[in-house]
Design a protein around this nucleic acid. Sequence first.
DNA 1: TCTGTACATGTACGAATGTACTACATGCGG
DNA 2: CCGCATGTAGTACATTCGTACATGTACAGA
Lengths: 182, 182
Amino acid sequence: MSSRRNPEERRRRIIQAAYELIPEVGVAKLTHRLVAARAEVPLGATTYYFSSLDDLVEAALTAAAEATSEALRAWAEALEASTDVPGTLATLTSDYLHDRAQMTTWNELYAAAGHRPELRSLARIWSDGLTGILATYTDHQAAQAASVFTDGAFLHALTHDQPLDVGSLARALTVLLNMDAA
Amino acid sequence: MSSRRNPEERRRRIIQAAYELIPEVGVAKLTHRLVAARAEVPLGATTYYFSSLDDLVEAALTAAAEATSEALRAWAEALEASTDVPGTLATLTSDYLHDRAQMTTWNELYAAAGHRPELRSLARIWSDGLTGILATYTDHQAAQAASVFTDGAFLHALTHDQPLDVGSLARALTVLLNMDAA
DNA sequence: TCTGTACATGTACGAATGTACTACATGCGG
DNA sequence: CCGCATGTAGTACATTCGTACATGTACAGA
């Protein structure tokens, strides 16, 4: 369905365009004109639907956070169906490590949250969500440690040509999640 | 000594100003004029000493990386003098987690490296350096895992009001560094 | 002392940007 | 069919920015 004369769809298109552009050019280089061009809407539409550029960016980052929440739900299901929690978590993490756009977006969110406190809660969604899921299988401290480790693995993948391999991930996640047995 | 008619000092002043401003306003909002004002030099000086703003930013981030290298050397010494490597590492990490400016700078570097490949090597200094140091005490995989974990702890501290406590850090770092015994 | 070279600094300018605004189109209730 | 609210779209404008540049100044060597 076309976006003309369809406010909801139009708004979604604009957010989607910003969402795509963030990993490509970074939050900082995002402009009304760039988003308008990508969304194939006139410049005026981007100011009509969002009261400021910051609002637009926030909407896009919120969309990113929602996408992450959905991914987390999928992780929760996969872990529940698994008999080898650390191994499954390692595989899930490894898959994520190859999605550079996803990780770049997440890092942009962290950087933005560093200067805009209202974004901090968005930045916590992944970390806290994963910790909550893992707490089903071990104690809170171990769950948090494993969650922190996967965050570190994202950062590692972002700065290195080759992300950590599944074996390394599995080994580390196994000892972390089994900390509660000690 | 005044910076007038003292090129080296002047250059250092400008870099220092940019270095200070990065955690405050972010790499993206850094401008010649902002740096000039902080360094108390005229606008022209910032373009005289650096061929472009990107060059200036790169110089500032390089300075940040060098500061990190020095910190790493201190870590190496402290660990060498210690009988409890994981515990000492936890303490060192915990101290770092309270230095928000330092971590913000580091995150800015990560974000910048995401869009400028020539900065990637700078972004690796911390991670690879720490891994190298820890490899003295355990196998490479365990050292890398511990290093990745501390990176994750930085990210955690950046987005949460309260950083991880020393106890949590010590517990996780202990099992990770002892992975080689398994 | 003279002079050339390196350093210093204020200004100017084109380009890009956020945002306001005006004019126009469209569909709906009366 | 008629206005009216809502959405659309192009344009204009003040501001800020990176950078170039012209002019000025201090100092080392002849």
